[in-house]
Design a protein around this nucleic acid. Sequence first.
DNA 1: GTGAAAGCGCTAACAA
DNA 2: TTGTTAGCGCTTTCAC
Lengths: 333, 333
Amino acid sequence: MATIKDVAKEARVSTATVSRVLNGNYPVSQDAKEKVENAIKALNYHPNAVARSLKQNKTYLIGVLVPDIANPYFMDLARGIESVVSVEGYNLVFGSTDEDASKEMNLLRVLNEKRVDAVVVATRQEKPDKINELINQGLNILMVDTYIKDIKCDYVVEDDYDAAYRLVKHLIEHGHTQIAIVNGLLSVSTSQQRLRAYKDALEEYGIPINDKFLLQGDYNRECSYQSMKQLLKEEVLPTAIFSTNNIMTESVMLAAKEAGLSIPEDLSLVSFGNITLPGLIEPQLTYIKQNSFEMGKRAGNLILDKLDHTFFESKEHIIHLDMQAGDSVKDMH
Amino acid sequence: MATIKDVAKEARVSTATVSRVLNGNYPVSQDAKEKVENAIKALNYHPNAVARSLKQNKTYLIGVLVPDIANPYFMDLARGIESVVSVEGYNLVFGSTDEDASKEMNLLRVLNEKRVDAVVVATRQEKPDKINELINQGLNILMVDTYIKDIKCDYVVEDDYDAAYRLVKHLIEHGHTQIAIVNGLLSVSTSQQRLRAYKDALEEYGIPINDKFLLQGDYNRECSYQSMKQLLKEEVLPTAIFSTNNIMTESVMLAAKEAGLSIPEDLSLVSFGNITLPGLIEPQLTYIKQNSFEMGKRAGNLILDKLDHTFFESKEHIIHLDMQAGDSVKDMH
DNA sequence: GTGAAAGCGCTAACAA
DNA sequence: TTGTTAGCGCTTTCAC
């Protein structure tokens, strides 16, 4: 494969001149420019970005770590990031962590060795020490979706507490008092916020908290499905469910359907995030409209900012979320 | 950031020895090894993969080009590739082409400059010349899903013709003669195969082809939705639809629902690929079970093969697909 | 078993 | 405006 030296020889100029034509950052005579351009075509030359990266200490690579690339939420996030950074010539390097802490640290290490210019971490494990170590070594980390105390980096997160609070309040104002929550892992900040909002809302209205109605999930399909199956076997059923993410909402609907319960007649349902095929499924959900594409764009912009200016204070971006009313909640009055 | 030189100095050995400890490919004395390992820890050293790539002419990066990362089919494909190649230390670099030919060529060029070790192209544009040029320059391309004549590289594709034929035959054997097809862009090999199978099956049974029943889609949501809307306004309706991909099947179901037609009572439906939430939606589809995760794994293995052995003849892998019977087809007998 | 040194392909400081 | 050259951080040949 042709190198810059070959081009220089072919065009009878120095490698410096070729580099200048390539990058257009220094003045070059028209004559030299043409000679170089002809040589490039003749040799079918394509610059080696690896060598450039080594010299410039910049790879134009941005790592993206997500727990589950099969969740549309994270794909939209990735697309949001890509839509912003690709304009500046960056490419995304992906890694799925499958919620596995060691896999995650390993990927982080590899991405660091590959000298990605930044990495967006949308993940749920908590290893503040290890991650801070990488940050101190100069790895540029941006956390999205989840906030982990003690990790010293920028964030883009959604306003989980507020949105969850409104969702539960919505149920209560429709006369529900027997409300169950299907929650994610409590090690994750989003789950913590959503649970706290749930409890605060109930307390606000003087509704006692029933431990049987606190269902543990892990934001994935299987676990929440089993929890629901279990719940629906109990003698005292809730009249409403608050599901804390889109995937688990699908499980809730499936479990309800299989138990012969229809929504909202037998069971009301509100969800943090919408399901995949709302148009084809009855009823229309009442849910918190998440917009991970937008979140990705913000993350992308934050990164571009940071990569341009070398100094930048740590930032926290909080995104406000709206509620979309559907017909999945029965009025109990 | 610490370099191999710093480590060598700290450990009082040469950089060569450090490199040997790092890679474990040459004998090193126990004593030297320990000194180096201590120095690495003390300096918090992380090798620079960019420099290594330059020297070794290998990046451990594999490009993945898909038209639409929001389609679960392509995500599963990516996961399949990742599951295989990540074991050997490769990372995936993504690019969504959005069905845009110039964006696609541009991404291919950038990935080539970044010297990815290979690129998996699951895309639908046809630029044999440009792509062959890159291949001739040494870019290692593997095409999946779509076969494009005149591009000289390996393939992993599904047996579209055969599977589509069985699907249409299934409809005919259930007594349908008025069968419409919702097809993708005809510039794509998969669409060509599926359409050919449709026509051949009808012909085989002596059923005339009605041009009004040949609906053009583009494998995306909007276009197929509009085509269906249009079709359902006609005076003569088909009794069955053959949808040639999962996304368009969702549109077909949505359009039918909105037109007040129920499946299979008013309209039978078979699909190439399943929809997203089969459990929640009535009826269960009769469809061709695609397995892009498996296809991704094969692609990954093919790439690993090729990257190990330097010489390898061009290969074509064809994946056989099974049909899954559901209850979306009414028996007309 | 170990070290010195060349060189991967490029950029940029410096000199002309 | 152009050329020369050092050097980015690593691997690997060659000599010891």
